[in-house]
Amino acid sequence: MKEADRALVSQLREGDQSAFDTLVRQYQRDLFRLAYRMTRNAEDAKDLSQEAFLRAYRGLGNFDGRSSLSTWLYRITVNLCISHLRQQRSSDAGEVPETHADLSPRPLDELEAREIHGAVGEAVSELPPQQQATLLLRVHHRLPYREIAEIMESSEGTVRVNYFHAVAKLRAQLKGLRDDA
């Protein structure tokens, strides 16, 4: 664990309110974006990332410092998102997720871009949650396999296999979009 993380954890354990503010400000964007890309819903992303901070704060006693603070926060967020997606999939199987479409007039290329983003988001959301999290942590958060393995609480080999399968599925599903692009 980094020295800055260690100091922050120590302050948090002493109940320092400003340390909690620092923790939130430092990681809020990363956790919110990860949750948003997994759920494709801003409201869910806000709730899930806030819940991750609360769980981290309340579970400080369980944080042994073997992983970094960011790895620990990502792990809590990923677990919350995976559990949320599983619940959502079992409750509204077959329904198309709400994407909060903005129907205001926009230039043609922007509309095309939105369609492409929508199709990519749709394809990613169809991946199994473990593969989805692995792909997003690798591509968007640029994390090494070793750290993703710590977040996913699995081996580096499993992470590599998940990533490989995720990309292979997307490659097949997005073939039409690549040809258009």
């Binding site: 309110q17 503010d21 939130v24 609360l54």
Partner: peptide, 27 residues
């Protein structure tokens, strides 16, 4: 190209007022 499409997946950039409210709720 596939990885580039995934990398371009957008995420909202909420304004500062959103983050202030976010932190207030957490506090």
């Amino acid at each position: 190209e596939t990885l580039a499409l995934v990398a371009r997946m957008p995420a909202p950039e909420p304004p500062e007022v959103f983050w202030q409210q976010y932190l207030r709720e957490l506090r």
